[in-house]
Design a protein around this nucleic acid. Structure first.
Lengths: 197, 197
DNA sequence: ATTTGGTTTAACTATTTGGTTAACAAAGAT
DNA sequence: ATCTTTGTTAACCAAATAGTTAAACCAAAT
């Protein structure tokens, strides 16, 4: 692993845990096992290092979403596939949702500025398809945006609010992961149940 | 408005926007329109000021939840009441969810230490009731924790991830608020639809 | 062997930032 | 009137933290 990779990984860990403002360059250097000056040798400054980490994170999420949303399948199939694959992905990257949400809220302008057309989720196709299937009588009449929001809410929230969820439901890491595994199949059924005609 | 109140309100605004780590005492002083030394005159330090703000925030949320969850109504009624009143409350305090979630994730030990028995949500009663109604054949067999998680996800997530939601769905503040108004009735129906036998 | 280029470090600097101090002012209390 | 308490400020301090520099290191090329 190159030094740059070591730094990047360390930065990912620290930024995801503490956020941009809470992260310390020294802590990242320690985590990477190198000198602090190396951070500035490989990445100009904290902002740019953060930007690299954030864009990588976001560009892992978005294309996956778009691939599913814009495929040739039915809405129900897409819901199944999305909840399955997305939860699968987030189980492997449990800090991503909270990280992205936090930074988007704390620093909307900065985040918006680094999001290009490629790495942005595009729900337009899926939304049109939902309206179509409503007309065809497959789906109950509803606001497609609300449905989309429901899908995201059910899949992403438990991870975004992980600590609170564990605290309120009084479950530990193992039970949490087990619940998320369960959720991979439950959610799609619940959502489809509530919208099919 | 007393100086202490001015400080507290300013602190609430700044902390909710930037989080604990990102907030600056100077910014809070400016927001309050007073000298920075006054902050330390009224509140010992940043931590304590933050603690005051956070506890107030949390102790506004939790009792409300408990009152609904532990009332004498049916599960369906509770779901209706909760989504209605909770979204109503959060519309008036749109930064609270993200604020609480963020700080719980960034600083779990600290947050847990300031949460006492009073201001903590207790879903035990509702969970037992759900199991009971499952046995009575009112609700489909399911894991009560998953249902609870669904309810929270659907109501809280849109606010917690506000910036991202607006960005992805390409809606402005007005449209967002309108969607949330809609949601007050939609969500309960969706959830009940998906779990009633 | 020596040079040369990128890599890495220790030590340093500049700035930000939470917190303190001492002086000042306004309002009650004696 | 004078003293005491409370509220308020400007100026200051010390610690933390992002960022710089110059020297050392080291591998490959000459």
């Amino acid at each position: 692993m190159t030094t740059e990779e070591k730094i990047f990984n360390a930065a990912r860990i620290v930024f995801q845990k503490k956020g941009f403002a809470g992260a310390r360059m020294q802590e990242i250097a320690d985590e990477a096992g190198i000198n602090k000056a190396m951070l500035h040798y490989c990445f100009k400054n904290k902002q740019q290092l953060f930007q690299a980490v954030f864009m990588k994170a976001f560009s892992q999420l978005a294309p996956q979403i778009n691939t599913i949303f814009n495929s040739e399948k039915t809405v129900f199939e897409k819901i199944h596939q999305f909840t399955q694959e997305y939860i699968d992905f987030v189980i492997r990257n449990p800090f991503l949702p909270q990280f992205i949400i936090q930074e988007m809220n704390n620093n909307p302008e900065f985040v918006m500025s680094i999001l290009n057309h490629e790495n942005r989720p595009h729900p337009a196709v899926l939304m049109a398809q939902i309206e179509q299937e409503i007309e065809q009588g497959i789906i109950k009449p509803l606001n497609p945006k609300q449905l989309l929001l429901n899908i995201f809410s059910m899949t992403v929230f438990p991870f975004a609010a992980q600590t609170m969820v564990k605290g309120i439901l009084r479950i530990n890491d193992a039970e949490f992961n087990q619940m998320m595994e369960e959720r991979k199949t439950i959610i799609a059924q619940d959502i489809i149940n509530s919208i099919k005609k």
